[in-house]
Computed example of a mutant assay.
Amino acid sequence: MYQLETRAVAFLDILGFSDLTAQAEKEIVAQEKFEGLKTVIDSHVRWDNDRISSAVPDILKPSYLFISDSIILSVPMTSQKYDGLLIVAIKSIEIAHKVLEMGFLLRGGIAIGNVRHEPKNIFGTGYIEAYKLEQVVSAPRIVLSEEAEAHMRTATSSNSPLKDHGIWIEEDEHVRLDTLHPHYIRDIHQHGRIEHAFGQYRAHISMSLGHRDAKARGKWRAMRAQFNRALDLHRIDVTPIK
């Protein structure tokens, strides 16, 4: 039987992954970078749920798919205490940090709708909406669908309004995630970790502003603007990029 449930689902695309794949067929350095990125993402998909608090029911831990340059994750919207949209949003931000730390950008869409998420496949209009939304997003951003945005404005998680979680940015016609929110950096409790991570981001962005491809340069210019905004918003002691 074709059973569906209401889930929050994110469709995330690693920008530049396809080019890296092509380069890896010819260059040893690109091969090493490709394997490193693949290992980081594959490890996140395989082991992320092991790091989630045992207080969160297993049914509410994200289901993942990692296919080529795309990462798909979804969570049921059935809990009275934990909100599936919030979980998907936070996990998407964590992935964005990991990807940028390796010099790549992330683009995506998050939707709420009917989904059947199997271990090796995913179906349903919720997934299709997230996929279509990602296709029209100007990079690099992760934006909410209209239904997801409406839910964010009215729902609560653990008695706290979703809209007050500080990870949403209103921009143009969409609400997007604050993918540079420092609270979701890996190993956040290490002394100086935030400044170190943003120093790496700064180096990757600055170097990529001279990318040979005009479209790629445009994406990195957009990330420069987001980076400088994040430094000011979160009061991070790193020099802005001119």
Rank of each mutant, 00 (worst) to 15 (best):
G108Y: 08
V99F: 00
A139Y: 05
V238H: 05
Y127E: 03
L106H: 04
H234T: 02
W168C: 03
A139H: 02
E129P: 00
E32W: 06
L209Y: 11
P140E: 08
S54M: 05
L177A: 10
G166K: 06
H191D: 13
I71T: 07
V88D: 10
D69K: 06
V238Y: 06
S157Q: 09
A89E: 12
L105R: 09
Q200M: 14
V40I: 14
E171L: 06
Q226A: 15
A155D: 12
S158A: 15
A139R: 07
L86F: 15
I87W: 09
K163T: 04
P62S: 07
D164L: 10
T125R: 14
H174M: 02
L231R: 06
L100S: 05
G84K: 06
G84D: 01
R116V: 10
H211R: 08
I95R: 02
Q190H: 01
D213R: 07
L180C: 06
V136M: 11
P57N: 13
L133V: 09
H181A: 14
T39A: 15
A96T: 04
R116F: 10
H44A: 13
E32C: 08
A89N: 09
N49G: 00
T179K: 11
E149I: 00
E134C: 13
R217S: 06
H183L: 12
R186I: 12
K219I: 11
V136R: 15
D42Y: 12
E173I: 04
K33M: 14
G126E: 03
S70G: 00
V143T: 10
V99M: 07
L231N: 04
W220R: 02
L4T: 09
H44S: 13
W47F: 15
L231S: 05
V56M: 15
A89V: 01
A225F: 13
K219F: 13
V99K: 02
M223Q: 15
W220K: 05
S53N: 14
V137E: 07
A230L: 06
I59M: 10
I169R: 12
H234P: 01
M102H: 12
E146N: 01
H165T: 04
R7E: 11
A96M: 07
G166A: 03
Y131R: 12
R229I: 00
D13S: 04
G36V: 01
Y127L: 07
I128S: 09
E35F: 12
G126S: 01
R176D: 06
S145L: 03
D232R: 08
A10L: 09
Y127P: 02
S54L: 09
W168A: 10
Y127N: 00
H97P: 06
G199N: 13
Y64D: 05
E32H: 11
I167Y: 09
A203V: 14
Y201N: 03
I188T: 02
Q226N: 10
F104D: 04
D69G: 03
A130M: 08
I90F: 02
G113S: 02
T21L: 07
L60I: 07
L86C: 05
A203T: 15
V143D: 04
S43L: 11
